[in-house]
Structure formats: C-alpha cells, structure tokens
Design a binder for these strands. Structure first.
Lengths: 110, 110
DNA sequence: ATATACTATCTTGTTATGCAAGATAGTCTA
DNA sequence: TAGACTATCTTGCATAACAAGATAGTATAT
C-alpha cells in the first residue's frame, strides 16, 4: 500500500474511530486493519504524531488510565470541535474521491 | 481542496488522461478540471515535474510539435509499460478507497 | 536469573511530493 | 507599447508518513 495515498486521510480515520468510542493509540493500529477489511495499515510511529496534532488542534482529548497491573494507557475521545472537523474532512474526502472516480470513468463514486 | 489528498494520485490522473489520447502539459491542467467536474485542480508547476517522473520511468513518451505560428508544444503519449502502470495504480486506488469507505461506512460495532 | 515476547508510549531523521513564485518566450489585440 | 494569453520549466519550501530505535512494564518458559 502506497504511503502517499494515505496522506491527509489518517486524521479522518482517527477521528472516525474515536468518534465511535474512546480508544488508546496502540489499540487504534489494529482497529484500522480490522475496520478496513485488512486494506489499510498504519504504524504506531505514524500514529502518535497524528494524535498530538489532533490534540493540539482541540479535536481530541486525552485521559490517562493507570491500572494496578499493566502499562498505562492514554485514551482519546473526540471533542465537539473534533466532530465538526470529522464532518468537514468526510465531505472533503467524498468530494475528492468523486472527482477522481469521475476521471477514472467509474459512475457514481463515493 | 487539501493538497495532501492529491498525494500519489496525480500520476494516476495523468496516465488516465494520456491513455485517452496524446496531450500536452498545459492542456492537461484544464482537462483535469473538466474531467473531474471541477472537483480537482492541479497547477502547472506541479504538473511538469510529474511528467518528467513518468517519462524517466518509461511510462510516457514526449513528442515536440513546433507549429509555424504559436508556442511549441510537448505532446506526451502512454507507453505499454505506462498502461501496465495505469492498471496497477488504478487497482491500488480502488483498494485504498474501498478500505477508507469501509471505515467511514461502519457505524459502531466491534 | 535471564531470555524472549508482548503491550504501550514516544522521538529522531529521512524522504517524497505538491505548490507558490518566478523565469522565459512567443502570439494576439487594443 | 502594453496587457493578456499560451506554453514550458526551475527553485525553494512545507508537510507528513515511516523506519528505526528508545523506554518501560508484564508474562512465560527454561
């Protein structure tokens, strides 16, 4: 899977997964593979910087959970602004995919 | 339109347009807007380097046309290797879009 | 005890590429 | 003689995905 195609879509993917429910970073890696039917994969070294970008932009909020046993987990949830952004990014993706599908000749894309 | 979404798709777009028929660079800029229904746009400063990449890879071939009047035009046509690459890129795009749509279309659940 | 493997977060350096901005040059009209 | 338009091409910048590695706790086996 080409690295370049993923550009600009990972934030959309993360917001979608976190809008479903609160998740922690390491969990998201496997969720992406599962939700995409094995078609998409993202490394954790890619994931964390994206989470920080989203947090700094106010789209998601972290919450540490430190269990008696086990490694601490940092759970993220989507803010109201994050849901707005999710809607915006989704619309942008659909518009882009529709434009590309129109060029490829596929009818009724996105 | 986000710059990042276009990443890795411009070569696919160019090969598609040039597989339709021979075209020159400046013409492709407007063809992209037309074919995409106004949804996609690419600057000429973006286009020419991509054409050189495709030419160097052996996917397209140039042909200068110098009319008695007017600025010379460099027409590109797709090679056999270019058609193979077009098929490969198209499949990759469809796989990626299917994966992302699967994530976007999934409402809750495991 | 120690080695391996797994969970989990985080950082650094590399690389690819789309684009803004500008250079160059010919044509056409006012 | 100026402006707008066609047409190709170059330079430098910003962004983001990733490989690779660091850190650290837990679990199992030998």
């Amino acid at each position: 899977m080409s690295r370049e195609l993923k550009r600009g879509t990972i934030e959309l993917v993360l917001l979608t997964l976190l809008a479903d429910r609160e998740r922690y970073g390491y969990e998201i890696v496997s969720a992406i593979e599962e939700w995409s039917g094995g078609r998409l994969a993202v490394r954790d070294g890619t994931l964390y910087p994206v989470l920080y970008r989203l947090e700094e932009a106010g789209f998601i909020e972290p919450r540490w959970e430190t269990p008696d046993r086990g490694v601490p987990r940092k759970y993220y949830r989507v803010t109201d602004a994050g849901r707005d952004e999710l809607g915006r990014l989704t619309a942008e993706w659909r518009e882009f995919a529709a434009g590309l599908d129109a060029i490829l000749g596929r009818k009724g894309g996105a």
